[in-house]
């Protein structure tokens, strides 16, 4: 045993738990949004999850007791539990405990990550995770740092280490005026392919979270109109041509 505390004593900062998630992995899922994110993407749909010190404290077993309520639905639909955020790997101990407990209950597990974390955190999570929904937002480190305040080098190093597991699905948020040009998208696909990734999900940018910003007393940071599935279809074609399995939407 390593130093992971028992499920009951592990406190988790949770932003929210959403049942009947159908965009965060296969089937019907429950998504647990963990609190805290190192990035500051201006289009972030979950701004309330960014602050690592807010959210509510829950124990692992409290969280699992919610997740278990829909166990029958997971079984019928090939679904399970997804840990998202924020960046779930900002709470690596909690995440590992949650994943272990989920696996002990027989659930399919997914982790949605930006990859912006210490490499060992991802490797600790890996044995208990069935799929990683791994964001690749851009292929240019400078632009990425400027817009999202993150390190693409770290992310790609982590992705490379993790992709050997064969569990990684790339998630590409399609953001107008950020990455929605053919060269950038091709660059992202090339990165994914070079790391042995076979599947990518293209997520059309939306502005549904604008109200949340207003409630948080913040302003929406990306002045673009939302786009449709059709708008990302040309990029889906590029991906398929490059040899990736592509899905639009999660």
């Amino acid at each position: 045993m390593n130093n992971i505390p028992s499920p009951d004593s592990t406190s988790v900062r949770v932003s929210s738990i959403q049942r009947f998630s159908i965009h965060d992995g296969p089937g019907i899922r429950t998504t647990v949004f963990l609190q805290g994110c190192p990035l500051r993407c201006p289009w972030c749909a979950n701004p309330e999850t960014q602050d690592p010190l807010s959210g509510k404290m829950m124990s692992v077993s409290q969280i699992l007791s919610v997740v278990e309520r829909d166990a029958d639905y997971y079984r019928h639909s090939g679904g399970g539990v997804t840990f998202s955020g924020g960046e779930p790997l900002m709470q690596p101990d909690a995440l590992e405990a949650l994943l272990k407990a989920s696996k002990a209950s027989g659930f399919h597990t997914a982790v949605e990550t930006s990859g912006e974390t210490a490499g060992e955190n991802l490797l600790r999570a890996e044995p208990f995770t069935d799929i990683f929904l791994f964001d690749i937002k851009h292929c240019d480190a400078k632009i990425f740092r400027k817009v999202c305040s993150g390190s693409l080098d770290t992310i790609l190093r982590n992705l490379e280490a993790l992709s050997k597991s064969g569990k990684v699905i790339a998630r590409i948020p399609c953001i107008p005026a950020f990455n929605m040009d053919a060269d950038t998208v091709r660059g992202i696909f090339a990165l994914a392919l070079s790391l042995g990734i076979k599947e990518a999900h293209l997520l059309p940018y939306h502005t549904l979270a604008k109200d949340k910003y207003a409630r948080l007393g913040r302003t929406w940071g990306w002045e673009q109109s939302g786009i449709s599935k059709e708008d990302v279809e040309p990029f889906a074609c590029l991906g398929r041509e490059a040899g990736l399995r592509i899905r639009i939407g999660g």
């Binding site: 009947f20 089937g27 639905y73 639909s77 679904g79």
Partner: peptide
Amino acid sequence: HRDVIKSLFRT
């Protein structure tokens, strides 16, 4: 999401 709906009702 017809498959999801079907699983939802069946469950």
